[in-house]
C-alpha cells in the first residue's frame, strides 16, 4: 500500500509539485541534521586540541582552528534554519536566472582584472550592476505575483 505524496497536475503546470503528506512512521529518536554537523565539528575540534598538545606551530593551529570554528557555525545555521523554516521551503521554485549568469561573468571579469589591469575590474561593474538590477526587478515582480495569488 503506497501513499501518494503528490497531487495531480494543475492547469499551467506540466508536472505537479509534491505536497507534504501526513508524517509517516517516524522513529522516536532520530539523528538530527544539525547533530551530524556538530558532531563533525567536535571531531575537528578534538583533532585541533590534539595538535595543540603536540605543540605545532601557530599557522597550523590557526588554520585548522578557524576551520573547526566555521563548521560549528554551520551546525548552528542548520539548527536555526530548522527552527525558522520548518516547512523546508521546497514548494518554492525560482524563475529568474539571468542575474546568475551575469553575476558569474562579473566575478570572472573582476578576477581577470588581476591579469590584465584594473580597467577590466571596472568593466566588471557593468554586468554586476545589471545582475543586481535584474534580481531586484524579479523580486519585486515575485512579491506582486504572490500578493495577487493569495488575494485572488
Amino acid at each position: 500500500m503506497t501513499a501518494p505524496v503528490s497531487a495531480g497536475p494543475r492547469p499551467g503546470q506540466d508536472e505537479a509539485q509534491p505536497r507534504r503528506p501526513a508524517e509517516p512512521d517516524r522513529p522516536r529518536a532520530t539523528l538530527r541534521p544539525w547533530t551530524v554537523v556538530a558532531l563533525w565539528a567536535a571531531m575537528l575540534g578534538l583533532l585541533v586540541a590534539l595538535d595543540v598538545g603536540f605543540g605545532n606551530n601557530t599557522v597550523v593551529l590557526e588554520i585548522s582552528g578557524s576551520s573547526a570554528g566555521f563548521v560549528f557555525l554551520l551546525a548552528g545555521a542548520v539548527w536555526l534554519d530548522r527552527r525558522l523554516r520548518p516547512d523546508r521551503g521546497y514548494l518554492r521554485q525560482p524563475t529568474r536566472v539571468g542575474s546568475v549568469v551575469l553575476f558569474a561573468v562579473a566575478v570572472t571579469l573582476a578576477w581577470l582584472g588581476f591579469s590584465f589591469g584594473a580597467w577590466l575590474m571596472m568593466v566588471a561593474a557593468v554586468p554586476f550592476i545589471a545582475a543586481v538590477g535584474l534580481e531586484a526587478a524579479a523580486r519585486r515582480r515575485g512579491k506582486a505575483a504572490r500578493r495577487d495569488a493569495l488575494g485572488g
Binding site: D14, L91, Q93, T95, V100, V101
Partner: peptide, 24 residues
C-alpha cells in the same frame, strides 16, 4: 491524504528546451 495544499507556489514555467533552456 487528499487535501490540497493551501498555497500553491509560483511554479517555474515548463522547462524551456534548446540551448537557452539548458544554460539557464
Amino acid at each position: 491524504m487528499t487535501a490540497e495544499p493551501a498555497v500553491t507556489a509560483a511554479a517555474g514555467p515548463a522547462e524551456t528546451g534548446g540551448l537557452v533552456g539548458w544554460l539557464q
